[in-house]
Amino acid sequence: MFELRLEQGSLLKKVMEAIKDLVNDANFDCSATGFSMQAMDSSHVALVALLLRSEGFEHYRCDRNISMGINLANMAKILKCAGNDDIVTVKADDGTDSVTFMFESPTQDKISDFELKLMDIDSEHLGIPEAEYDAIVRMPSAEFARICKDLSSIGDTVVISVTKEGVKFSTRGDIGTANIVCRQNTSVDKPEEATIIEMKEMVSLTFALRYMNSFAKATPLASQVTISLSSDLPVVVEYKIAEMGYIRFYLAPKIEE
């Protein structure tokens, strides 16, 4: 059987809110390592990879590896029924076609359980090799979300350029153009407000803003976002999930033909 218990149930709620609009169905893999998921969006432009390590849970039991096919919109509906302070338990018995979500209020005076039917999902798993990136930008996640939102009111694509000057986000549309430059800034009181730019090579890539705005739905999970760029690779937008793992979004660039 498989069982996990997470006292900070709101974290699972936030994970679902971050991915449910990008991916329709996905296989969630449960192993001794943890609870993980990899899925592409329906147009195969973006990929999301989630890892919640077993050590991060208050209780984690996985007798044998299982893969649970889940419709994310339905899982999000169920997790919306959990209170923000609720303790969440997820449980699946071997050989059954459903998974149970149990929510306990912190004072134990309300206990709910929801059973979600599992699905057979024929999903393709992609191997993502470790890569050296030309530039890695760490910045406040809220700032990144704000930039993507602001630029999408002007254009559909964003050019992300990293130079010695900093990281520049540019767009153009029918009404005009926009450029936002963020410089490295480590002289802040709180580390979560820092912007750190590690550049090996200058890099400039173009991406669809629609996807960036979708990734930014993970903002409540982490105060910082890491954007890894290489001229011949998809961008990786990573939100670390405190003490537990990460949610990584991979997005293929747009190129001029």
């Binding site: 195969h44 992609l126 090799p129 669809a208 998809p234 991979y250 997005l251 033909e257």
Partner: peptide, 14 residues
């Protein structure tokens, strides 16, 4: 004209 690449052009099935 800009063309959207697919993620599958970069990563292989495992």
């Amino acid at each position: 004209r800009s063309v959207q690449l697919s993620i599958k052009e970069f990563y292989r099935s495992s």
